[in-house]
Design a binder for these strands. Structure first.
Lengths: 235, 235
DNA sequence: CGAGGCGTTGAATGGCCTCAACGATGGTGG
DNA sequence: CCACCATCGTTGAGGCCATTCAACGCCTCG
């Protein structure tokens, strides 16, 4: 649905925010006609392939991004070279918020699925935010959402045994879904989200498959046994 | 109940924000005389003892708090009853920001040292934030600071061996300090920050003391061997 | 003085990591 | 079209490190 609408105009470059199919839930939700008239900068819209980076940590932060569909990982690096995925951004999430306050990005933002992106200048948001209470409120809500996510990753995905963490991640992936079906990421990425190794992740997933807690319906799409996974997650 | 009694007893007067000694670095830094005239609600100021809770997760969130001195931990609970400390708030930090956007608090906020607090109504901040760009900007900066902290806890304090995590926590505790001396928390709290057990924390600290990476100058105040701790943290 | 909290230490277990090998898959070039 | 290679998921074996359960000393406080 959403996907069809946008794929039609994909690659075309300039977005039509007034008629955006996600308008109701997007950062610019509260904007009115007079606000749009003040946006003179182009708002680009494009699709990126898995593995493509939107930006890297330390890059000049002059754009914000809205994820229209797909998924991006936000990655931070450790002194020893290891990496840790600190958050996922999915439909309607905004990434690069730090560009409003700081002069550089904090993470690498990399697509892990084919991902539709809208990109708009931080300057536009700063300008509109100054005297638009609705946008102001929308910004606060998004910052708070990111913060809640970050806290949840600490308590749910970085605490307890590997079995528990994997189960919690799986449950989290289907939570805001219509069905109890979900697509998995690479074992390496899942490990980087959970603070465990690729091998341990693989072993755990394989065990869940053998126990039919996970059933592969189509390649890389799994049906979850939610009650039993929840039991593991909470025990 | 107990909490309210303590808070009331600790009340040490109505704050004089105009002449606040922390004014330059506090949330209300950008306010002018005309703004203060619009604050009709009282801004309380008090001291709480270690172990006292400012609020609990789920409480009605109608106040924000500034930490003037001391330290508060923000705690989240797991389904199995375990607890995880997701952040520390120290001088000039604001806690309870979520009250601006949601109707309840996300964590337990508990003092871990004698702590001076200013408390002000969320509705005052909401009102002033609507048309005060400086406060607006200040709020965004604080949200971003909290988010950066959360991400750092994931990458630095929840990744790697227990030795590394403890070392990174110690370095973090002295970082915004004038000396390389710091006060430690209980082993239980440190474990809850690092996602490791109390015993492992104690063993690691004890080992560092034997190796003179930590030297106790006065009871519970330690001098850190920063270069060598940094080596451990990054190896 | 006894009780309880806290830090420390010991011993044993087990879970996760490390290193390694192997099959399946998919893309590439001959 | 197929041989070749790289990547990814899986599995095994072995070892280390953190957890678990327990005990003990020290301290404060009632």
């Amino acid at each position: 649905m959403v996907k069809n609408v946008t794929l039609r105009e994909a690659w075309s470059g300039e977005a039509d925010c007034r008629n955006c199919s996600l308008r109701a839930s997007v950062l610019f939700a509260g904007l009115e006609e007079k606000d749009f008239e003040r946006i003179h900068d182009p708002i680009d819209q494009f699709v990126i392939k898995p593995g493509t980076a939107l930006y890297h940590a330390g890059d000049d932060g002059d754009h914000l991004f809205t994820v229209r569909s797909g998924t991006c990982k936000l990655v931070q690096y450790l002194p020893d070279g290891g990496q840790r995925i600190v958050r996922l951004a999915r439909t309607t999430d905004v990434i690069g918020l730090e560009a409003l306050v700081e002069d550089h990005y904090e993470h690498d933002a990399v697509a892990v699925q084919p991902t539709e992106i809208c990109r708009f200048p931080a300057r536009v948001v700063r300008m509109l935010g100054r005297d638009n209470p609705k946008l102001h409120r929308e910004l606060m809500a998004r910052w708070q959402r990111a913060l809640s996510e970050a806290d949840a990753w600490l308590t749910e995905l970085s605490t307890g045994s590997a079995r528990q963490r994997v189960a919690r991640l799986l449950l989290r992936l289907v939570r805001d879904q219509d069905s109890s079906e979900c697509e998995l990421f690479s074992r390496e990425d899942m490990g980087a989200m959970l603070g465990i190794t690729t091998e341990t992740t693989s072993r755990t997933i394989a065990e869940y498959k053998r126990q039919s807690l996970l059933v592969e319906v189509t390649p890389n799409f799994f049906l979850l046994d939610i009650p039993n996974l929840r039991r593991i997650a909470e025990e």
